[in-house]
Design a protein around this nucleic acid. Structure first.
Lengths: 339, 339
DNA sequence: CCCGTCGATGTAATCGATTCCACGAGCGCG
DNA sequence: CGCGCTCGTGGAATCGATTACATCGACGGG
C-alpha cells in the first residue's frame, strides 16, 4: 500500500508538502497542490489512519459498550449513535457485553488500548474497578440508559417514572389488583429504578408489591420465562406481569404459551421498551416507549462535547405509555407505536 | 498515559527488554522480568495498540459491514461473528450500511484506512469499484450471506432452495394457487436467488409466477408494506405472500392489519429468515430458518484462515422450513423454532 | 540599493511500540 | 588458558504520518 513517501516521490515534493495538501494547510502553491493531488489519484493513496492517530493522539473514534446486541432497544440505540457520530466526523466501535461484567470489562479494555477518543457505556453492573479508573483517569465518558451512581460522568437516559404511573393507572382501571414485576439485575440502575417506580405507583393506589411478586430476571428472555413460570406456580398467581424489558416480556410470552394459557385472560402483560413487533404479537403488547433515537443522539453530542473540551450535558427524557391489548380490553382505541 | 519508556525507566531496563517481557520473548532473565512486571503493575501500563499496529502492520481487527443492524438476522450474525473472532484473538468493528451502497462504501473505506486485518461483507449492491479494488488489492475478504459474482473471494452463506421447495409444497398442500413474492433488491444475490428458487419451485407444481405477483422491495419493512398494499389492490390479489426477509414480512403484517384483514384467512404469509418473535405474532409466522450462528462462525474462520495465510473455504449450509400457522391450519403440529 | 517580511518548501524530530544488530559476560571444551 | 557459543541486554532503525524550525527567493518600503 502506497505511503506518503511514495506520493511525495511521485509528485516531486517532500512529505511535508504532501501532508500540507492533505490537511489543507494554507501555504502551499497551487502548482504543488495539483501535482500532489494528481499523485494521490494515480497511486490510489489513502492516509494510514493508524500512523496519523499515533502522531496526533486522536482516533476520531468513539467506543460504545452496550449490554446486549440482540436486544432491539440497544440495537436501535447503536444505530442512532453511529448516525450522529458519523455526522460529527467520528466512527463508532461497538462492544457487546451480553449482560456479562467480564465481557464488558474486556471491551472497555480493548477500546482503551485502541485509544478511542471517548467511551459511551450502558453499564452491566455497579462499576468494575476498570471502569471507575477510566472515569477517574479522565477518559471522556458518558453513560447511556444505565449509569453508575457516584461517578462524575454525564448521564443520558429516559425517566420512566411518569409512564409507569400511567401504566399502573391503566391496570388499576381495568380492575387488576395483583400486579407482579420481572425485575432486571439489582446491580443496574434500570434494574432497581423500574421496580421502585412500580412500587411507588402501586402505593398511590393503596396496593402492595409483595416479595413473591418481584421476580429476579437478568434482562434476557430466558429469565423472563423462568420468572413467569414461578409466578404461575404460586398459590395466588398475579393477574398482571410487568416485564422490565422487552426480552423478558418475550420470555413471559413463551411461558404463557407453553402452558396453553392466554394473554390477557389468564395473565396480563406489559413491558418496558416498545419495539415494532409488539404491534403484531398475539395480543399486541402494552409497553413503555423510550425516545431511543433521541437518547443515542444526545449521548453522542454530550460525549463529543467532552472530547472537544466543552462541558457535556446530562439529559433525561420522558418515556411514555403505549396502550395495546395485552392487559385487557381498553375503552380507548388501540394506539400505534411510532418507534 | 504511561508509555513503554516510563516502564523501562521505572524498572531500570531498556525499552527493548520491556518489549521482550511483554511479548514473552525467551531470552529475558527472571530478574528483569519480575522488575518489568512490577513496573507495569505500579504504573498501570497498557501497551498502545495504535503504536503496536503501526510497527507490526497488524491490527488484530476484523471489519464487518452488514446491510442493516436493525434486522434481527444481521444482528444475530454480528453477535456470532464477534464471539468467534474474540475466541480467535480478534476484535470486530461493525459498519452498518442500512442497505445503502454509499454508506457501505463509506464504511469499507474507513475500515481500510484503519488497516483492519480482514473484511467480512454482506454486500448491499453488485459491487462498487471500491470493493472490487479492495478484493483485487489482496485485502483478505470473505462474503457472508450475500456475495458479488465473479469476484474471487470465499462465500459463506446458506442455500434456501430446498427450504423454498418445502415451503411451496406446504402452500400447495393447503390449497393455495395464487402465490406472490416480495423480492429483495435485484442488485443483491439473495434478492435474485429467492425469487428464482420460488419460481422454480412453483414451476414444479405447474404454477406460474406472473410479474404482477413479484413486488420489488428493498429488505426494509416499509417496502414490504407498500408492496403488500399493491397486491391487495389487484383485481385478483394473491392468496399467499412470501416475504424475502423478516422485515418485509413485518411490513406486510402492517399492511394487512391497516386494512382490517386477517392472516391467513384473507392473505397468507411466509417469510425468509426465522426470528424469535415469529412464534408470538398473530398468527405465528411460517418461516425459513438459516443457521445464522453457524454462518457467522464459519465466515470468521474462513477470514482468519486467509489472514493467517491458509486457503479459506467457501461454505454453504442448508436452510430449513419452520411451519407455523400464517399460511393456514396445517395437519402437523406447530413446530417451535430453535433459532 | 538594501533589509525585513512573507510565502513556499524541505529537513528532521516525534508519537510508542518492535526488532535487528552489536556487545559483553559467562561457560564449556579442547 | 583461550576460543567460540549462548544468553541477556541495550542502542538505534523503523513503521507513516504531523509539525516545529530552518532556509531561500521574491518583493516592497525606506
Amino acid at each position: 500500500m502506497a505511503s506518503i513517501k511514495d506520493v511525495a516521490a511521485e509528485a516531486g515534493v517532500s512529505v511535508a508538502t504532501v501532508s500540507r495538501v492533505l490537511n489543507d494547510h494554507p501555504s502551499v502553491s497551487a502548482d504543488a497542490r495539483t501535482r500532489v493531488l494528481a499523485a494521490v489519484e494515480t497511486l490510489g493513496y489513502r492516509p494510514n489512519a493508524v500512523a496519523r492517530s499515533l502522531r496526533t493522539d486522536q482516533t476520531h473514534t468513539l467506543g460504545l459498550v452496550i449490554s446486549d446486541v440482540m436486544n432491539p432497544y440497544f440495537t436501535e440505540l447503536a444505530r442512532s449513535v453511529e448516525e450522529e457520530a458519523r455526522a460529527l466526523g467520528y466512527s463508532v466501535i461497538i462492544g457487546n457485553a451480553d449482560e456479562r461484567p467480564d465481557l464488558q470489562d474486556h471491551h472497555v479494555r480493548t477500546l482503551l488500548d485502541r485509544r478511542i477518543d471517548g467511551l459511551l457505556v450502558s453499564p452491566t453492573d455497579g462499576g468494575s474497578p476498570l471502569m471507575l479508573d477510566a472515569a477517574r483517569a479522565g477518559t471522556p465518558m458518558v453513560f447511556v440508559d444505565r449509569w453508575i451512581p457516584g461517578v462524575d460522568v454525564p448521564v443520558v437516559r429516559s425517566d420512566g417514572r411518569g409512564a409507569v404511573r400511567d401504566l399502573v393507572a391503566h391496570l388499576h382501571g381495568l380492575g387488576h389488583r395483583r400486579l407482579a414485576i420481572i425485575a432486571g439485575p439489582a446491580a443496574t440502575t434500570t434494574g432497581r429504578e423500574r421496580v421502585e417506580a412500580f412500587r411507588e405507583a402501586l402505593a398511590a393506589y393503596g396496593l402492595d408489591l409483595p416479595d413473591a411478586y418481584i421476580g429476579q430476571g437478568d434482562f434476557q428472555a430466558e429469565s423472563g420465562r423462568l420468572v413467569t413460570e414461578g409466578f404461575l406456580d404460586l398459590a395466588e398467581p398475579p393477574e398482571v406481569v410487568f416485564a422490565a424489558d422487552n426480552l423478558m416480556a418475550l420470555g413471559a410470552l413463551d411461558a404463557v404459551r407453553a402452558r396453553g394459557l392466554r394473554v390477557p385472560d389468564d395473565l396480563a402483560l406489559a413491558a418496558f421498551d416498545d419495539i415494532r413487533w409488539f404491534v403484531h404479537t398475539d395480543p399486541p403488547v402494552t409497553a413503555i416507549a423510550q425516545p431511543t433515537g433521541e437518547l443515542g443522539r444526545a449521548a453522542v453530542r454530550a460525549l463529543v462535547d467532552r472530547i472537544e473540551g466543552r462541558p457535556g450535558q446530562s439529559v433525561t427524557l420522558p418515556a411514555r405509555l403505549v396502550v395495546r391489548r395485552s392487559c385487557g380490553e381498553d375503552p380507548t382505541p388501540v394506539q400505534r407505536s411510532t418507534t
